[in-house]
Design a protein around this nucleic acid. Structure first.
Lengths: 112, 112
DNA sequence: GTGTTATGCAACCAAACGTTGCACGTTGAA
DNA sequence: TTCAACGTGCAACGTTTGGTTGCATAACAC
């Protein structure tokens, strides 16, 4: 069963820019909104809003560091998100597999 | 590398109602907008718009049948979507795994 | 101090998701 | 053959979300 929290996680990673931000953060360890926006096609403020979304669902955490605020991935929460992805993928995969098997059975029946 | 088409696929399955619609369609084989809306918390028109989105990215196809229009999942395209999910999940998983290994190595170094 | 840099806040715009209302074709039964 | 019921499609509208710009403020570097 899918919960509301899971939906929040999904919609957080549903946005392509947010996914790329997670990629960048995983790659660099930690970064500020300004640093991230340098590597993304959107403004620093847009990045800041996305970071707020990711923070709200717990996918990133931040701490002030001098005059900048650095964000880093919350590994446990990203693992939960990955588990969600895998779960949905596995469900659909199983269902598709079953449909194919049925289709093949019908085919054999018609041929035979 | 992620393409624009892939982003479209992602955003299509990013919406929780659309994911549930795909579940329902996989389960029932084919259904009309009205039938789907009976099993969802949104109006028939909202469902119709979601179906239009899914149709635009090729995840469902439809054909008129009497006075109703029935939608069914395009299996090949859903397989592509599942592959996307798995790819992103695998990437993040690998990255998380690497980070953990590094963390453990540092830990051992400090202990030793 | 003064200028540069990073941030945060507010106003604003466009697209997406949701609603309701209505008009039109199809179905089935009086 | 009417006529009511059903399913659809279209239009108008409101709210949320992702994006922008502009500006004020705090921290660094000279």
């Amino acid at each position: 069963m899918t919960t509301a929290v899971d939906d929040d996680l999904w919609s957080a990673i549903g946005d392509p820019n947010r996914r790329r931000m997670l990629d960048l953060l995983l790659d660099g360890g930690a970064a500020s909104a300004t640093a991230l926006s340098d590597q993304l096609p959107v403004s620093r403020q847009a990045v800041a809003k996305h970071l707020a979304v990711l923070d709200r669902v717990g996918l990133v955490r931040s701490s002030p560091e001098g005059r900048e605020r650095r964000y880093r991935v919350d590994q446990a929460q990203l693992e939960r998100a990955v588990a969600q992805l895998n779960a949905v993928g596995a469900t659909w995969d199983a269902r598709l597999r079953r449909i194919k098997q049925i289709a093949e059975a019908i085919q054999r029946q018609q041929d035979g």
